[in-house]
Simulated scan of single mutants.
Amino acid sequence: MKSLQWQEFAKYINGSFTKHHFWHSAKVDTIYKNHRIIFDNYTVYKTVSSTTVTQTYTRVITPLSFKQEFYFEIYRKSIFSSIAKLFGMQDIETGHHEFDKDFIIKSNNGFKVKQLLNSPEVRKSIESIQNINLSISDNEGIWGDKLPEGQAELSFYCEKEIHDFEKLKEIQILFHTILDQFQNMEIINN
């Protein structure tokens, strides 16, 4: 998304806009219950057979501090995930048949991720987003360096630029819903 569009989105969600800098894309920040949520685009440059190929992602991140280590990854099933499962990829079942049928869930703590996904609001919010890649990661900005011990990020990314403000707002609502559930579970530091 262009800087002007991010600036308009910041107004739309009552957030703050930061202009593009040499190494950093334009971004929008918003605060929800003392948690910073950051929206931006991230471009990956790859060289394939001496040709540079770029892929731009929309990502949304919020830094967190957990009381104990907790990671997960949730994404929609595809033909590729079905093949990976045949070769031993672990998939946690939540006990919610329709949700389990549509999503791959991986975590270092099956109990906590089931507790998170036991919330109908969290499941509904995840289901509302078509191209979802949602995780708790200890890497900065999903693909960056390792974060300091005890730090993690709730991260969303999509393999394209999202220009629709309503779709971006759905992601913001997803983050609010998950943060609320984390507080109910008493697993994050405020």
Rank of each mutant, 00 (worst) to 15 (best):
S135M: 11
A152V: 06
Y157L: 12
W6T: 07
D180G: 04
I79T: 09
F70Y: 01
K46Y: 04
R59N: 15
H24A: 13
E170Y: 10
E166M: 04
G141A: 07
L86A: 13
Q115M: 14
N189F: 06
G88L: 04
Y12R: 07
H96Q: 14
I61R: 00
E159M: 11
Y157F: 15
L174N: 03
D102A: 10
K114P: 00
T43P: 05
T54K: 10
F165P: 05
K112M: 15
F103K: 00
S125R: 02
D102P: 02
E159G: 15
N109P: 05
Q183H: 11
T177D: 11
R59M: 11
L134N: 01
V53N: 14
H35E: 08
Q55N: 03
K124G: 07
M185P: 00
K160G: 14
D138N: 12
I38H: 12
A26G: 13
S125F: 00
L154D: 08
Y45A: 10
N34M: 07
P148G: 03
F72M: 00
K27P: 12
N108V: 03
Q115S: 14
S81V: 02
T51S: 14
E69K: 02
T30V: 12
Q151S: 13
L116C: 01
K19V: 11
I92Y: 01
I136P: 01
K77S: 08
I61L: 14
I61F: 01
F111C: 09
T30Q: 06
V53A: 10
K2P: 06
E159T: 12
K77Y: 11
N131D: 15
K67R: 13
T56S: 11
Y32T: 01
Q151P: 06
F9I: 05
V53Y: 12
K85V: 10
T30S: 09
Q7K: 14
E121N: 12
K101N: 11
S50E: 15
L174G: 05
Q181T: 09
H20K: 11
T58E: 02
E153D: 04
V60G: 01
K11E: 09
F182H: 00
Q68D: 11
L179C: 11
L116N: 00
L154K: 11
D102C: 12
